[in-house]
Structure formats: C-alpha cells, structure tokens
Computed example of a mutant assay.
Amino acid sequence: MRKSPTRALTKRVLTISMSSSPRSAKRKRRDSSNDEEHQPEEIRRSSDYWFNDGNVILQVETTQFQVAKSLLAMHSTVFRDMLTLPLPSEEPLVEGCPVVVLAGDSAEDWTHLMAAMFPTSYFRAGPIELPVLAALLRLTKKYDIPGIRQPLVERLKQEFPTTLEAFSPIKDWTLLPAGDSPNETVVGLINLAREIGLYTILPTLFYSLDFSDVQDKAFQLLSEADQVTCFRGYATMLKQNDLKSTAWLKREPGKAVAKDCEDIRACRAALKSLAYTHFLSVEGRELILEPWDERWGKGLCERCLTISRKVFDIARDIRWAAMPGVFGLPEWEELEKMDFE
C-alpha cells in the first residue's frame, strides 16, 4: 500500500520560497579578489519545458521550468497542497507567474521528471537508463507522484523479487540495460535502494554481483560498509556448500542416495562427478540458487534422481530464506515492512 508523504516533508515543501527574482546557485566569496568569482551563475529557462501558457515557474539550481499548476497538482499531492495556498498580496510575480525555488534538487533530475510528465511519445521504447530511473524515483518519492513512481517500483521488485519462485539468476533485465558492466548497474541500484528506502531488492542485488574480479572499479562506488557486506556475503555463500546442504552429493563410499538404488556404483560415480565439477568448485557459488538442471541427473537411476531433486529443492529453499542474513540484512518479511512503499 502506498504511504502518504510525511507531515515533515509536506511542511518543508510548503515553505519553499516564492520569489520574483531568480536566485544565484553560487554564493559570493568574500575572500576572493577575482571579480568573475563574485558573479552569480546565470539563470536560464529550460529549452524543452518552458510553456507560455504555464502559470508557475519552478527554479531548480539555475534552471527554470514554466508549467501549469493543474498538471503538477494532478501528478503530485505535495504540489497540490502547496499550490492551493494563497500568495501574499505583496508577492511579486515574473511574467504573471510565481517562482518556486526547489532547494536541494538537481536540475538534471527535474529534466528527467519533466520528460516523464510531458512524454513526446506514449510508449517508452527499451529499458530506462539508471540515471533517469534514479532521478524519477528520487523526485517522485519526495513530491509524492505515485502515477510515475509506483510502476517503476513494481518493475524493480519484479526484477529483484522476494520469492524464490519469481527469481531468475540470469541478468535478463527488462527495466534496466546491463551495459558493458552489469556490476556498475547493480552497484548503482544498491546505492539507490539505500537512498530511497527500497530494502526488499537489496538481497538479490547483492547476490547478482559478479565477484570474479575483485578489482572491479564498480565495487569502489559502494559505501565501505556495503563493500564489507559484499565480500563477507560472498565468503558465506562459498561456505554454504556444506555437508548439510549437499549431503545428497557426498554419501559415504558404497552408498547411493536412495536405499533401494538400482545401480550403486553408477550413481556414486555420477554424484562424485557432479559434486566436484559443479557444486563443490569455486564456480559452485553461481549454482547456490540455480534451479535444477536436467543434465545433472545424467547417470543416476530413477530412484536416486527423484530423491536428489527433492533434497536439492529443499536446500535451495533454505538458502533463499537465509539470503538476506548472508548480506547482513533482516529477514524477508521485515524488509517488506521497511520498504517506503
């Protein structure tokens, strides 16, 4: 269920200043003799989002957007409340419009949001670049714009789900392009999830990281705490190939999985090959949440195959339930309660 913006947030936005004279994005330096550094940055109008029939001007950093109040109110409950407040009688206007200075936001982020509010085509082709996604989620949360925010959050939760049934270990994303470095995308999403409070996607994001190159520069973009979380989690995943979770692969010599095995020697040979070729190798980390592959049953009798698959699925369920803890996070149910939406 979508949560309403907090009273503190609403109060803060409602007190955003309205001014007739655009404000400088740079303060004057008193200790400098360079006249150029004394000059404020020039305010410019957005070339794409300055509509002559608009009746409010939004100033973000040094960029101004002139739009219609009714459109902002339609998208955002925060702006709906703010724009219903009467202007002071002495409040000057610019070209008949009040100027709302949005402190703390970035002009680039607002340009992405304007593109979502004023699309040039109805259908968006292809995935969304990470900087655009981050801008949209950041601002649509801050100003409570559910029509744009909720579909993006839903798609993120589909890509990085909380259930094993919905999970796919293959990075076949539909919302985001993986690009040349999937790790950069995953790291960017981890940072974004931390920033906006979308905690349920963190376990599968951490799991999706490729640890084959520990010198990958993408890891340096994480906070120090999350860097530690990543590598501790990776070490834990390697240890998860223990006797309990892979008992079906490591039976005592002369024994097979099923008590009524049809061919103990053949099944033991098949299990040994599978164990050391896949699950007990360093690369076996990639198979911790992998679904059963029919090729793994090659060489097993029907009875051993049935039991092996059953034990494998049970171990996989256990690993999924434990995955948040592997990365130092609360359990799945607690993460769902922590999500901002």
Rank of each mutant, 00 (worst) to 15 (best):
M1H: 13
K3F: 05
R7L: 14
T10G: 08
S20F: 07
S20K: 10
R23G: 05
A25H: 05
K26G: 02
R27L: 11
D31M: 08
D31L: 07
S32N: 08
P40T: 01
R44Y: 08
R44P: 01
S46V: 11
Y49M: 06
G54T: 09
N55A: 13
N55I: 08
V56M: 11
V60I: 15
E61M: 09
T62V: 09
T62K: 13
T62E: 06
Q64W: 00
T77E: 10
T84N: 12
P86F: 01
L87P: 00
S89I: 13
P92R: 11
P92K: 10
L93W: 03
G96Y: 03
G96I: 04
C97Y: 05
A103D: 14
G104A: 11
S106F: 10
A107R: 04
M117S: 07
M117P: 01
F118P: 05
P119N: 07
T120C: 09
V132E: 15
A135S: 15
K142V: 09
D144M: 09
P146V: 11
R149K: 06
L152E: 07
R155G: 03
E159W: 04
L164P: 00
P169D: 06
I170Y: 06
T174M: 04
G179K: 08
V186N: 07
V187G: 06
V187I: 14
G188A: 05
I190K: 12
Y199N: 12
L205H: 05
F206P: 00
F206T: 06
S208N: 09
S212F: 01
D213P: 02
Q220Y: 03
V228A: 14
T229Y: 02
F231K: 09
G233E: 01
Y234S: 15
M237Y: 01
M237I: 13
L238F: 10
K239N: 07
L243P: 00
A258K: 03
I264Q: 04
S273C: 11
L274M: 10
L274T: 05
F279L: 12
L280P: 00
S281D: 13
R285M: 14
W292A: 12
W292E: 08
W296H: 06
W296T: 05
G299T: 03
E302S: 15
R303S: 12
L305E: 12
I307Y: 05
V311F: 03
I314K: 15
R316A: 10
I318D: 09
W320M: 06
P324C: 08
F327T: 04
G328E: 03
L329P: 00
L335S: 07
D339P: 01
F340E: 13
